[in-house]
Design a protein around this nucleic acid. Sequence first.
DNA 1: AAAAAATATCAAAACGTTTGCAATATTGCT
DNA 2: AGCAATATTGCAAACGTTTTGATATTTTTT
Lengths: 345, 345
Amino acid sequence: MKITLKDVAEKLNISVSTVSRVVNNKSYVKPETREKVKKALEEMNYSPNLVARSLKNKSTKTIGIIVPDISEVFFTYLIKGVDDILSRNGYTIILSDTGENPEKEELYLNLLLEKQIDGVILATVNVNKESKALDRLFNNNIPVIFVDNLPNIKRNYDSVIIDNSKASYMAVEHLINLGHRRIGIITGKLEETTGYERLMGYRKALMDNGIKIDENLIRVGDFKEKSGYENMRSLLEIEDKVTAMYVASSKMTYGAVKAIRDAGLRIPEDIAVVGFDIHDNSGLISPAITTILQDEESIGKVAAELLLKRLQDEGEKRYQKIVLEPCLEIRESCGYKNIKTKASK
Amino acid sequence: MKITLKDVAEKLNISVSTVSRVVNNKSYVKPETREKVKKALEEMNYSPNLVARSLKNKSTKTIGIIVPDISEVFFTYLIKGVDDILSRNGYTIILSDTGENPEKEELYLNLLLEKQIDGVILATVNVNKESKALDRLFNNNIPVIFVDNLPNIKRNYDSVIIDNSKASYMAVEHLINLGHRRIGIITGKLEETTGYERLMGYRKALMDNGIKIDENLIRVGDFKEKSGYENMRSLLEIEDKVTAMYVASSKMTYGAVKAIRDAGLRIPEDIAVVGFDIHDNSGLISPAITTILQDEESIGKVAAELLLKRLQDEGEKRYQKIVLEPCLEIRESCGYKNIKTKASK
DNA sequence: AAAAAATATCAAAACGTTTGCAATATTGCT
DNA sequence: AGCAATATTGCAAACGTTTTGATATTTTTT
């Protein structure tokens, strides 16, 4: 059976509070009793009941992390970063996978609240709808850190993202520098900040370089591979063909590359490609795809650190939006090789 | 502030227990009071404190899952499967990443115990050392389900794995059927069942087919890419070279493929390759690597279901070892194309 | 109309901690 | 020795639930 403070207290014929105090290294307790108790604790194999402690302390030392799909590399690295920081600070993480379902997200937020988590890191899929669950969290003063995607809500909030506009800017500028003028883009849903901002960066890069924007070269996908394939295929039907593509998500990039190949065109000779979030852990994709990278693990770490800060000084009410730098990793799909540039601050 | 049962009880001038009963739909309560209470609950925005409930009920409806590295595809899919089953059964999962560190694993097991989790799904890295933490879990009757890797301990336990020996057998037999006789293997650490069993299957396949085993063609790596590369390179130095390779982990496969390419050899023309766990979500690796696949998500689901079963009838003391079938997916790296076979029961 | 049975409610204990306050023990000082 | 200061311990309340046993109310049966 499970040993409790009471058990060891009785065994030693002392009070529970004293035992508790040695467990927590708190307050005064005579050195010899402390030793005696420690020994008994050890012998009886005492292990504290953290749920009881949580009830008393009103802190579970647990945070919730909600992601749309844990099997996406982006989120696994993100979680890795979060876990790294939080676990070393004595926190435990509860993981929830919403399967990109806003109702599930709502459900889990409520569940986490009921579980009395101390905070939440949230990669939301619920960008527009106002969320009752979210309101509840805010009302209960549970810090929430948004990552990846920003919701469209009235109140202020903390968030950690990358500069999506700049990411696109870097990608497109790279293509321009290589001499391309007809550059197409496949971005993601415009309701999501990621999709929208990435398109904005594309526009800006072209404008800044005096290239007229051809709306016909702009396609909006849904981040999935299929939409990458199909949008690319339709782009290839334009007579005045693109010479370069910027595709704003990994899966869409895979789709686009396949469409290009299926059309019998070569990369980079016929069309140069810059992708997004292409982590090729096999290192076997050829040509290696030049890509915008975000340091997902850092995003996770920074989010975790921000959360920790919020947990420390509850008073702080100024919300932060932390924007990390993306990075353009030049690989082979634009005709260059082995040059790696990184955005500077 | 947080609303408690007491708050709504006082508001309605009734007892806490009645309110509790309507919250839990338990026992008798007069229809009209029930309605009255429900309304108040709703209005006051009551949300139960699950930690208090857990303390009373001695069940947290939470399970822990411990993996060596959450950023490995294998584990992300595994977790996905576990999460799917458990979340739909009202359980919440606490995720811990040990970073392949046995001490951390020990630490987390203890932490989970203290957090009063109801059960654990464990992909251990601690195959040999006897674990005090593990003993504690067993002593406290917390069900533990092992996945992927089996520990070398005295007591019986539940586990869900694939038939690693059969996996190798299928891989090697495939190569033999294609006419290969000099087939090399790079397996993983032999202390781990995965490494050991996979080697055994290789041996058996050769023996069953009357091919003499050349110990010189057997290499033992550590599952990492580098060991794949180096072992492959050393294999290529043998004068009577292999015509086919079987590499028993994804990363080692990537390494081996690179070594083969770096040596100026072609796949599959010069050397055929069967890999392991090669999930190419880009679909862009060429030639696509023929591979043994395990259905990680199913492993997760089956493990979760087994755990649920254990949680239901605590009495059950017969431990189970559930062995799932691997599958050989024939892609391009052995010279065949688009033929897919699946192991039958 | 009284007794028995069923229904509805409540008070209090319990889950395993932590902690403020009070009580007691020890020490140092004069 | 006497007192104040300090160190050590214990008691009891609290955290928010669930649940048992008791009591109160209503309904049914005779």
